[in-house]
Lab assay of single mutants.
Amino acid sequence: LVRYRTISKIPQITLNFVDLKGDPFLASPTSDREIIAPKIKERTHNVTEKVTQVLSLGADVLPEYKLQAPRIHRWTILHYSPFKAVWDWLILLLVIYTAVFTPYSAAFLLKETEEGPPATECGYACQPLAVVDLIVDIMFIVDILINFRTTYVNANEEVVSHPGRIAVHYFKGWFLIDMVAAIPFDLLIFGSGSEELIGLLKTARLLRLVRVARKLDRYSEYGAAVLFLLMCTFALIAHWLACIWYAIGNMEQPHMDSRIGWLHNLGDQIGKPYNSSGLGGPSIKDKYVTALYFTFSSLTSVGFGNVSPNTNSEKIFSICVMLIGSLMYASIFGNVSAIIQRLYSGTARYHTQMLRVREFIRFHQIPNPLRQRLEEYFQHAWSYTNGIDMNAVLKGFPECLQADICLHLNRSLLQHCKPFRGATKGCLRALAMKFKTTHAPPGDTLVHAGDLLTALYFISRGSIEILRGDVVVAILGKNDIFGEPLNLYARPGKSNGDVRALTYCDLHKIHR
Rank of each mutant, 00 (worst) to 15 (best):
I183H: 01
G271F: 01
A291G: 01
S301P: 04
Y104D: 01
S283P: 01
Y97C: 01
Q68K: 15
G164C: 09
A119P: 07
C243K: 01
E158A: 13
I91E: 01
F171K: 01
M433N: 01
I270M: 01
I340N: 01
L431Q: 03
K111C: 03
A213I: 05
N265V: 15
R349E: 04
G116M: 08
R165Q: 12
E114R: 15
H408K: 01
K202H: 03
K111W: 14
S308R: 01
Q269M: 04
S345F: 03
V86T: 03
E121K: 15
A338T: 04
E195L: 13
N368I: 05
R362W: 01
A225V: 09
R165C: 11
A247E: 01
I248F: 01
Y80P: 01
P163T: 05
H162G: 09
C427K: 01
A125T: 12
T150L: 02
W75G: 07
W89I: 07
E114T: 15
L229P: 11
A449R: 09
K418L: 09
E157N: 11
L394V: 04
E195P: 06
F435D: 03
D286C: 01
L197K: 07
G305R: 02
A106G: 01
S277K: 03
L92F: 01
H439D: 01
E195Y: 10
Q365W: 01
K172H: 05
P367N: 06
F83H: 15
A235T: 14
G164L: 13
T102M: 08
Y329H: 15
I144E: 01
M328W: 03
L230W: 09
R214E: 06
R259V: 04
G193S: 10
K436E: 14
D88W: 01
H448I: 04
V136K: 07
V100A: 01
V210Y: 09
S298V: 13
E114I: 09
I366R: 02
D268F: 09
I388T: 06
G443F: 01
A213M: 05
Y65A: 11
H79V: 01
W240Q: 01
W245C: 01
K111A: 08
R205G: 01
V132G: 01
L263K: 02
W75L: 08
C406T: 04
D137M: 01
Q372W: 03
A403N: 04
K285T: 14
L134V: 07
Y384W: 08
I189V: 13
E121F: 07
I244P: 01
Y293N: 01
I166Y: 01
I361Q: 03
R362T: 03
E121W: 07
H162D: 12
A181G: 14
S345P: 05
D257T: 08
T352H: 13
T113Y: 04
V95R: 03
Q379E: 07
M251L: 11
A99G: 04
H162W: 07
E114S: 07
